[in-house]
Design a protein around this nucleic acid. Structure first.
Length: 267
DNA sequence: CTTGTGCCCTGACCGC
DNA sequence: TGCGGTCAGGGCACAA
């Protein structure tokens, strides 16, 4: 499931390959995944790709006029000259004969065409602090205004953008914090550990090419390797790498959360 | 305003 | 081999 490191790797794998290319045809195979589906093809056709950017878990393909905004959700993939199959929902053909496809087994992903103004408005509303760019003070001030369990707030994209279920669990383990720990009760040391671990884990995961749990691959079809470094996600019932006790799971805002009952005690 | 719940969707997996 | 049930979960609509 693509989170910030996976989305970043998709972009890095595609940016050099498709920048500068002209789109000569747009085939919408599954209209449901397209936001402005009626005029989408006409809007995108004949545009030139300038570059690709990331905001949170969103991929922005900047065109010479307007932008494609893409969210991969759970199983979405953007593939350069990839295999066209029954899960291919969009195909973008370039003038040089190459193409970009959007494949998505579960059809949760969404793609829209937005002009610059619409894009800016949308991102401002939906996407919060960028982990790699946020400063400690703004992180702390924003987080401490929130109620509820810390994990709920780590998953809130309008607060900090890009953390999903996998990295939230890993960040909390590294910080020694229980997923249900009340945000308002966090100490200064907890906040500083969280801030450092958010940046550190997302950064290391990005360098490792992201995490491939089921079928994530980047734009080339390359899998990630960070799953080998996971300490808690997917390890429920196994021994904690730190203290040896058995990792437990609980639900937080409907998401499975794995944690160590000793290393992540609520103090 | 915040907070909670169900839904979208398919494949993998499990027990029988 | 098949079959029904359960689980995975990001973001959104909707309700309270």
């Amino acid at each position: 499931m693509p989170e910030l490191p996976e989305v970043e790797n998709v972009i890095r794998s595609l940016v050099k390959k498709i920048s500068g290319n002209r789109i000569i045809d747009v085939e919408v195979i599954t209209p449901n995944i397209i936001y402005n589906r009626l005029e989408f093809s006409d809007l995108v056709k004949d545009k030139i790709i300038i570059t690709l950017e990331r905001r949170g878990k969103y991929i922005i393909i900047k065109l010479n006029e307007g932008n494609l905004l893409i969210h991969l959700r759970m199983t979405g993939k953007l593939l350069y000259n990839g295999e066209i199959n029954k899960h291919t929902h969009l195909k973008i053909d370039f003038i040089d004969g190459d193409y970009l496809i959007y494949n998505d087994v579960r059809k949760f992903g969404r793609i829209s065409y937005l002009n610059d103004e619409e894009l800016e408005f949308y991102l401002l509303k939906k996407v919060g602090l960028e982990p790699g760019l946020m400063e400690y003070n703004e992180f702390r001030d924003k987080l401490m205004k929130k109620n509820g369990p810390i994990k709920k707030n780590l998953l809130d994209q309008t607060l900090i953008a890009g953390i999903g279920n996998i990295y939230a669990d890993e960040i909390l383990f590294a910080s020694g914090l229980h997923p249900l720990y009340e945000t308002k009760n966090l100490l200064e040391i907890d906040l500083s550990n969280l801030y450092n671990n958010i940046r550190d884990i997302l950064d290391k995961a990005t360098i490792a090419g992201g995490s491939t749990i089921r079928d994530y691959v980047n734009g080339d079809g390359t899998a990630g390797e960070y799953q080998d470094a996971h300490k808690v996600y997917g390890h429920s019932g196994k021994e904690c790498t730190c203290c040896g006790c058995i990792l437990e799971k609980t639900k937080v805002v409907g998401r499975t959360s794995v944690y160590c009952p000793i290393c992540q005690r609520i103090r």
